[in-house]
Measured scan of single mutants.
Amino acid sequence: IEEVKKIVSEIQSKQLTRITINGNTYQVNSPEELVEYVRKVFS
């Protein structure tokens, strides 16, 4: 979970619009959307 928080804060600070998780690239339009992807991947 700490690793996830680190990734999320990194993305928020860079305002990235794409994230790659487990080889899948997602278009991310908002931090909320990012959190949803993270929940799916780590749930």
Rank of each mutant, 00 (worst) to 15 (best):
V28N: 11
E10V: 10
K6M: 09
N24K: 14
V4L: 15
K14N: 09
I21C: 12
S13F: 12
Q27D: 08
N22C: 14
S30P: 05
Q15I: 06
L34S: 00
Q27M: 09
I21Y: 03
I7V: 08
N24G: 03
I1E: 14
G23Q: 02
E33P: 00
L34H: 00
K40Y: 12
V28C: 15
V41T: 06
V35C: 02
Y26K: 04
V4A: 09
N24Y: 14
N24M: 13
S13H: 12
E36I: 05
E36H: 08
K14A: 06
E3S: 12
F42E: 02
E32G: 07
E3D: 12
L34Y: 06
G23T: 02
E32S: 07
V4Y: 14
E32Q: 09
Y26T: 06
N29Y: 13
T25Y: 09
S13E: 13
V8C: 07
V4M: 14
L34W: 04
T17L: 06
E3Q: 11
K5N: 13
K5Y: 13
P31C: 09
N24R: 14
V8G: 01
T17G: 02
Q15E: 05
E32H: 06
N24W: 11
F42Y: 11
Q27F: 15
K6G: 06
K6A: 11
V38M: 06
P31T: 10
S30W: 05
L16I: 04
V41E: 08
Q12L: 15
E32M: 08
E36G: 03
S13W: 07
E36N: 06
K6V: 10
R18N: 09
S9M: 15
V28M: 15
G23D: 12
T17H: 06
V38S: 00
K5F: 12
I1F: 13
K5H: 13
Y26G: 00
G23R: 01
E32T: 06
T17W: 05
E2S: 09
Q12H: 10
N29P: 11
E2D: 12
K14H: 08
R39V: 11
E3C: 15
K6W: 13
E2M: 10
T17V: 10
K40W: 13
E36Q: 06
P31R: 01
E32Y: 06
V41I: 14
Q27A: 12
S13Q: 13
I11H: 02
F42M: 08
N22P: 02
I19P: 14
T20D: 04
Y26P: 00
V41N: 07
I21N: 00
K40R: 11
I1G: 10
T20N: 06
K14Q: 10
Q12N: 08
S30G: 02
L16V: 07
Y37C: 12
E36W: 06
V35T: 05
E3V: 12
P31D: 03
N22I: 06
L34F: 02
S43C: 15
R39D: 03
E2L: 10
E10W: 12
E10T: 06
E10R: 14
I7L: 13
I1A: 13
N29F: 06
L34D: 00
E33F: 07
K14L: 12
K6F: 11
L34Q: 00
I7E: 03
Q12G: 04
V8R: 05
N29L: 13
V8F: 07
Y37L: 15
E33D: 06
Q15N: 09
V41D: 02
R39T: 11
S30H: 05
E32R: 04
G23A: 02
L34K: 00
T25M: 15
V35M: 09
E36S: 06
S30M: 04
V28F: 15
